[in-house]
Design a protein around this nucleic acid. Structure first.
Lengths: 122, 122
DNA sequence: TCAGGATTTTGACATATGTCAAGAGGGTCG
DNA sequence: CGACCCTCTTGACATATGTCAAAATCCTGA
């Protein structure tokens, strides 16, 4: 039960596709609430939102160092944020030569929007 | 600039209607990123998602004590969570007699979904 | 006015989070 | 191979967060 969660949110792999009914259609289960919360938490940070937006609006995938420059933070910090996004299934990262390039999982973002927005058509 | 935010996220009033372009349409501004993050943070907790879902699927508004019973947490804890949701503009609370009844701001939820989901029609 | 129930606020505590510096891997190119 | 660049991991630190108990508010009804 959700009340007996005195300490930590467990660390789960939430990189699988989001799969739960819109919040308004049915009372959400404890399990779905936890998974959804972990994904929203991954997005609920100004730096990570900024990174997502840069990736979404950019022509191509961007590497870690470019992103670090764009948000003006250390590369280790940006790597940390990218790790969180990747772990939540929001982005995919791929090594090309010396750099690692990141791109958004559009489906994951759309699915998240759909769970929140009852009136959303797709 | 977003990088020079060494400490705390400022406490802002984000109860006003959400107003920013979908994340994918334009690189999000630092200001919009901050506001959006604060709203998402309000939602990014399993207990608060559960509360939202209960309110969304229930016939009527629910009072604090009913919600506390539903999620099996102390009333002070639930009051704290409801305060966060209210502060983010996700719910409205109204006193009726001895109890305080809470209901969801559907628009706020929908707007949040719309910012996330580029393909959402409204 | 006063007793009692509902709600919120305050204080305390353990845990999570965001940040950077320093170090460890991994890849490229002389 | 060896120097160097990009990335990720680790350690440390300050701050935020979720929880409850206890105290303070607010409201109703006798």
């Amino acid at each position: 039960m959700i009340g007996t969660m005195p300490k930590a949110l467990p660390v789960l792999d939430v990189s699988a596709p989001i799969c739960c009914a819109p919040m308004a259609s049915v009372p959400i289960s404890d399990d779905d609430a936890l998974h959804l919360a972990l994904r929203l938490k991954a997005l609920a940070d100004p730096v990570r939102l900024k990174l997502m937006s840069i990736l979404l609006t950019g022509d191509d995938a961007a590497c870690t160092c470019d992103l670090a420059a764009a948000v003006d933070l250390s590369e280790s910090t940006v790597s940390h944020h990218l790790g969180k996004l990747r772990n939540a299934g929001m982005i995919a990262s791929e090594r090309r030569g010396m750099n690692v390039y990141h791109r958004v999982h559009h489906d994951a973002l759309a699915a998240l929007g759909a769970v929140l927005n009852p009136g959303c058509c797709r």
